[in-house]
Amino acid sequence: EDYYQILGVPRNASQKEIKKAYYQLAKKYHPDTNKDDPKAKEKFSQLAEAYEVLSDEVKRKQYDA
């Protein structure tokens, strides 16, 4: 799945936009606030993985290549 789609940001998003999108979605899908939703944990880990790659310039360049 596309990391940009997961975070809901365009491919040319700035680091600030990526961070903002991640924090909004992380708050929304955090397992502690969605105890009754088994998919929230999965969504949250996808968000974390996408953010880890896109927030790191080197990893992001490799991902975009």
Rank of each mutant, 00 (worst) to 15 (best):
E1I: 14
E1T: 13
E1H: 15
E1P: 14
D2N: 13
D2I: 03
D2G: 06
Y3N: 02
Y3I: 03
Y4P: 00
Y4R: 01
Y4L: 01
Y4M: 00
Y4C: 01
Y4E: 00
Q5K: 14
Q5A: 12
I6Q: 04
I6F: 05
I6H: 03
I6M: 10
I6V: 11
I6C: 06
I6A: 05
L7P: 00
L7G: 00
L7K: 00
L7F: 03
G8L: 04
G8T: 03
G8S: 06
G8M: 06
V9T: 03
V9Q: 02
V9D: 00
V9C: 05
V9F: 01
V9H: 00
V9L: 08
V9Y: 00
P10S: 11
P10G: 10
P10R: 11
P10H: 12
P10V: 06
R11G: 04
R11K: 12
R11I: 05
R11D: 03
R11N: 06
N12C: 14
N12S: 11
N12I: 06
N12R: 08
A13G: 03
A13V: 05
A13I: 02
A13C: 07
A13L: 01
A13K: 01
A13H: 01
A13S: 07
S14I: 05
S14F: 04
S14P: 06
S14C: 07
Q15C: 07
Q15S: 11
Q15T: 13
Q15F: 15
Q15W: 07
Q15Y: 14
K16C: 12
K16D: 15
E17I: 08
E17N: 06
I18R: 00
I18G: 00
I18H: 00
K19F: 15
K19D: 15
K19V: 15
K19N: 09
K19E: 15
K20F: 14
K20T: 14
K20A: 15
K20L: 15
K20W: 15
K20D: 15
K20H: 15
K20C: 11
A21N: 05
A21C: 05
A21V: 05
A21M: 08
A21T: 04
Y22N: 01
Y22E: 00
Y22F: 13
Y22D: 00
Y22A: 03
Q24D: 12
Q24L: 15
Q24E: 15
L25I: 05
L25A: 07
L25Y: 04
L25C: 05
A26I: 11
K27C: 11
K27H: 10
K27I: 15
K28M: 12
K28V: 10
K28D: 08
K28C: 09
Y29C: 06
Y29Q: 05
Y29S: 04
Y29I: 06
Y29L: 12
H30L: 09
H30P: 05
H30R: 07
P31F: 08
D32A: 10
D32C: 07
D32R: 08
T33N: 13
T33G: 14
T33Y: 14
T33C: 10
T33L: 13
T33S: 12
K35C: 09
K35L: 12
K35I: 10
K35F: 11
D37M: 04
D37W: 05
D37N: 10
D37G: 04
P38W: 07
P38C: 06
P38E: 10
P38S: 08
P38V: 11
P38I: 09
P38L: 09
K39A: 14
K39D: 13
K39Y: 13
K39C: 11
K39V: 15
A40F: 08
A40E: 05
A40R: 07
A40P: 04
A40S: 09
A40I: 14
A40C: 08
K41D: 07
K41V: 11
E42M: 14
E42N: 11
E42K: 11
E42F: 15
E42S: 09
E42W: 14
K43G: 04
K43N: 05
F44A: 07
F44K: 03
F44W: 14
F44Q: 05
S45N: 10
S45L: 12
Q46E: 06
Q46N: 09
Q46D: 05
Q46Y: 10
Q46C: 07
L47G: 03
L47D: 00
L47T: 04
L47Q: 03
A48K: 14
A48Q: 14
E49V: 12
E49P: 04
E49I: 14
E49Q: 12
E49M: 14
A50H: 00
A50G: 02
A50D: 00
A50E: 00
A50K: 01
A50T: 02
A50R: 00
A50I: 11
A50Y: 01
Y51S: 01
Y51E: 01
Y51G: 02
E52R: 09
E52T: 11
E52P: 02
E52C: 10
E52G: 12
V53A: 03
V53P: 00
L54N: 00
L54C: 02
S55G: 15
S55N: 06
S55W: 04
D56K: 02
D56I: 03
D56Y: 02
D56P: 01
E57S: 08
E57L: 07
E57T: 11
E57W: 14
E57G: 05
V58W: 11
V58E: 14
K59N: 04
K59W: 04
K59Y: 04
K59L: 09
R60Q: 01
R60D: 01
K61Y: 05
K61L: 07
K61Q: 11
K61V: 05
Q62G: 06
Q62N: 10
Y63P: 02
D64E: 04
D64N: 04
D64C: 03
A65I: 09
A65Y: 07
